[in-house]
Design a binder for these strands. Structure first.
Lengths: 188, 188
DNA sequence: CGGTCTCTTGACGGAGTTCAAAGCTAGTGG
DNA sequence: CCACTAGCTTTGAACTCCGTCAAGAGACCG
């Protein structure tokens, strides 16, 4: 658990043992049961979460009362609602555990202090943010180019892991297809 | 021009006069004519651009040979192809001046050096990257929720500036509508 | 003026949604 | 170990939004 986080930091920056200890001491271990909410729509997001094990989804409820999934995240991913966290505004999405999920989480206040004390962390989170930009752009780029069928095939092929662990109707929602139409696609 | 950049830095961090001079000395002034390319598909993106004046679009050509616009940027915005720049991979998009455009640009190599010498810049670009995440998520979030008509109305109302300076068919492309259908929408 | 770039019109077709209903499946309690 | 229920997936028919194609009308520029 501790080494899992440490390995992640070491991918991008090098912290001394003492520095990492200081960082780690700011994190809190939390386990969420299936369907527990990490963040509720309307609340201000106070944490960044590093997923040790499990699966988180980010979703909102549209005008018609339908759940719309905007993101999945698994082991070794960072999750938060960037907008709510950075600007300290009410969140427009929910974060929910799809499975039983264990995370290391850090409070915004603690992170702000750490960023001042250990400037290398600025670089770390800059890179994390840039990678997020790249990931989001890739996703929506692909998304706009391809039709539903190809989106689904790509999803299954590219992240088979998710296809196993997540019910179909959630995949449909994430791909912005109705479950009914996805059903059609899987037939033919 | 110099103060325009300085003001932008000061929004997020405070640099001493000497530090800013060092930073500024790494930037180069460039003016592009209408239709000039700042970055061509297939090239590796070597610069971040800060727009002093003008209007840039980011686009690619799809399978059918149609231009697809993924982004507009104007005065006081940063532009680059994040993926190509950060990972030093061939770009999948073009950056082009829609009007005559003046920018301050910085090379990746020079920026990398600056980031080491002036760690405050790490914070600056972390925030810029986070803001980009927020902007992209807002855009595509809105995008997925709303139909073409509302997307167009929102675009005109929200950024009337662009609606003035950019031909309709580019707006259509950006909103992922055909020019023909946009024409329909504007009628009714 | 002639050409190129931009915007509009209308007929048609297709991808994907909606609605209503039924079939499956797995977990739960008796 | 069976029965029941809630959660998940499938079906099919009607409908809608939006793209495609082909053509024409302005508008701007040399």
């Amino acid at each position: 658990m501790k080494t899992q986080l440490q390995n992640y930091f070491n991918r991008h920056i090098s912290l001394t043992e003492a520095q990492f200890e200081e960082v780690y001491s700011c994190f809190e271990i939390k386990t969420y049961q299936k369907k527990d909410l990490l963040l509720r729509e309307g609340e201000v997001c106070q944490h960044k979460y590093f997923i040790i094990d499990g699966l988180i989804r980010s979703y909102y409820i549209d005008d018609k009362g339908t759940e719309k999934i905007t993101q999945f995240a698994i082991e070794n991913w960072w999750v938060t609602n960037t907008e709510s966290f950075a600007l300290q505004r009410p969140s427009n999405i929910n974060l929910q555990a799809v499975e039983e999920t264990t995370v290391l989480r850090i409070k915004k206040d603690d992170l702000d202090v750490l960023l001042v004390e250990i400037p290398a962390l600025e670089k770390f989170f800059r890179i994390v943010a840039e990678n997020m930009v790249i990931a989001i752009q890739r996703r929506y780029g692909f998304y706009m180019k391809m039709n539903s069928k190809i989106r689904y095939e790509h999803f299954v092929e590219w992240i088979p892991d998710f296809a196993q662990r997540v019910p179909l109707y959630m995949i449909a929602s994430y791909l912005d297809i109705t479950p009914e139409y996805l059903s059609q696609l899987r037939k033919g």
